[in-house]
Simulated scan of single mutants.
Amino acid sequence: MTTYVWDYLPEYENERADLLDAVETVFGSGQLVLGKSVRGFEEEFAAYHGLAHCVGVDNGTNAVKLGLQALGIGPGDEVITVSNTAAPTVVAIDGTGAKPVFVDVHEDDYLMDVSQVEAAITPRTKALLPVHLYGQCVDMAPLTALAERHGLAVLEDCAQAHGARQGGRTAGTMSDAAAFSFYPTKVLGAYGDGGAVVTDDAQVERRLRRLRYYGMEERYYVVETPGHNSRLDEVQAEILRRKLTRLDTYIEGRRAVAARYEEGLGDLAELTLPRTNPGNEHVHYVYVVRHPRRDAVLEALRPHGFHFNISYPWPVHTMSGFRHLGVPTGSLPVTERLAGEIFSLPMYPALPRTVQDRVIEVLRGVLRGV
C-alpha cells in the first residue's frame, strides 16, 4: 500500500451525500454561471473573515494576479515577496507585468524575514506580498507598518492559511486585500480549481468584479477596461459553501494530526518539526519537517510505500523560467538551504490513525539507519 501526503477519498466518503446534493442544487437551479451559489459563497466567505467583500475567481493564481491588478500593480512596478513559495505566487506577479523582488525567510518558521524588506524597497516598489506558508501567518504588524510608511499596498497570499490567526486576527484581514486558493488539497478545498480575493475596500472589490469578467461592469459586451475570464465555477462555489460550514472542524482535525506527530516524533534530535510562532494559530496545511540528510531519508522510505512531497525542492529564483529576474544562486541562503532539507508528512483531517501510526513507526526506524 502506497501512502501519500494527501488523499481526498476519505473525506469524500464522509461527505458524499452533501457534496452530491451540492451538484444537484446547481444543476437544478437554472443558472450555471455567476449564480446564487457564487453570490452566496462570496457573502459567507467575507462574513467568515469579518470583511465587507469577497470576489470569487477561477483559481488561486488568478486571485493573486487580479488582486494585485485591483490594487493598481502593473508593468514597471516591483512587488516584494519570497522565493520559498509555490511558483504560482511569482507567476501571478509576473503576469501583471510587475517584477518580483525576493527577500529571504527565517530559518525556524520558513516565513518571510520582515526585517529584510525595507532594504529591498526601491522607487519602483508598489506592493508587498507576504505568503502565509504551510498554515501560519507572516509577522504582519511590522510589515503593514512598513507599508504604511512607504505608501505601499499589501496583498496577503493566504492559499495555505484558511482560518489561521495571528493575535486574534484571521489571515486575510491584515492588509488591503488577500488572495485565497481552493485547490483540492487546501485547508478549504474545492473538488476542482477555485479562488477568491477578500477586501474591505469597495473600490478594490469593484475593480475585481470587472477584472474577472472580461473588464465588463453591468452590461454584457460593454468592456470598461480589458479584463479576464476568471469566474468562480458555480458548482465549486456550492461545494465550498457546504465545506465552509465545516472549516473549523477541518482545522481541529489537522491540529490533532500535528499534535500526534509532535508526540511521536518530537524526541528525534535531527528531525526538526514545525514551529508555531507566539501569537499564531497554525492550521497545518502541510506538515513540513527538516532533516540534514533529507534525500537519504526519502529514499529509505520508498521501500515502505511512502512517497512524500517536498514543499518546495526548487526555490523560485533558481527556476529556469525566472532566469530573466537575474537573481543569482546563493543570494537567498536560508531559502536555498531549506530546499535541500525539508519534506512533508501526510496531513489531512481524515488521515486514518493507523496510517499516521505507521508513518511515525517507519520514520523512526528509518532515521536510526541514515
Results as ranks from 00 to 15, higher is better:
Pro333Glu: 13
Val283Asn: 11
Ser181Phe: 06
Ala70Leu: 09
Arg165Asn: 06
Ser115Trp: 04
Met1Asp: 01
Glu205Lys: 12
Glu263Pro: 00
Glu234Asp: 07
Gln203His: 06
Val38Ser: 04
Arg206Met: 02
Ile360Gln: 02
Glu217His: 14
Gly264Gln: 02
Pro292Gln: 10
Asp233Tyr: 13
Val154Gln: 08
Lys243Gln: 08
Gly135Val: 12
Gln160Arg: 06
Ala190Thr: 00
Gly95Thr: 01
Leu232Val: 11
Pro349Gln: 13
His291Arg: 11
Pro88Trp: 08
Asp94Lys: 11
Asp104Gln: 13
Thr89Tyr: 01
Arg207Lys: 15
Glu224Phe: 03
Cys54Gly: 02
Glu361Ile: 01
Gly305Ile: 08
Asn84Met: 15
Asp109Pro: 12
Ala256Asp: 14
Asn84His: 15
Met112Phe: 14
Ala127Gln: 10
Arg207Glu: 15
Asn62Ile: 04
Arg254Pro: 00
Ser344Arg: 06
Met112Ser: 11
Gly369His: 12
Ala237Arg: 15
Phe322Val: 07
Leu188Trp: 07
Pro333Lys: 15
Ala86Ile: 00
Thr249Leu: 11
Glu299Asn: 07
Glu361Gln: 13
Met1Tyr: 01
Pro292Val: 13
Tyr348Ser: 02
Val101Cys: 05
Ala141Ser: 00
Leu208Ser: 09
Glu148Arg: 13
Arg207Cys: 01
Ala259Gly: 07
Ala141Phe: 00
Ala98Asn: 09
Gly172Ile: 11
Leu271Gln: 04
Gly50Asp: 08
Met319Phe: 09
Thr170Phe: 11
Thr173Gly: 02
Arg302Ser: 07
Gly50Arg: 08
Thr185Pro: 02
Arg169Gln: 13
Leu51Met: 15
Leu188Glu: 04
Lys65Leu: 15
Leu325Gln: 06
Gly168His: 10
Tyr48Leu: 01
His106Thr: 12
Thr96Gly: 09
Thr3His: 10
Asp7Leu: 04
Gly167His: 08
Asp113His: 01
Asp233Val: 05
Leu338Val: 10
Thr170Asp: 02
Gly192Ala: 10
Val103Ala: 10
Val154Thr: 07
Leu240Gly: 05
Phe102Arg: 04
Tyr110His: 03
Arg246Lys: 15
Gly279His: 05
Met1Glu: 02
Thr335Arg: 04
Gly50Val: 13
Leu71Trp: 08
Val197Ile: 11
Ala63Phe: 12
Arg302His: 10
Asp193Pro: 03
Phe102Trp: 08
Phe45Met: 12
Ala70His: 09
Ser29His: 12
Tyr183Ile: 00
Ala86Pro: 00
Val286Met: 15
Asp18Lys: 01
Ala87Glu: 13
Arg260Tyr: 03
Pro130Cys: 11
Tyr213Val: 00
His307Arg: 13
Ala119Gln: 07
Gly40Met: 04
Lys186Ser: 07
Ala339Thr: 11
Thr170Tyr: 10
Asp7Ile: 02
Thr276Cys: 11
Val64Arg: 07
Asn229Ser: 13
Ala17Glu: 15
Arg209Thr: 06
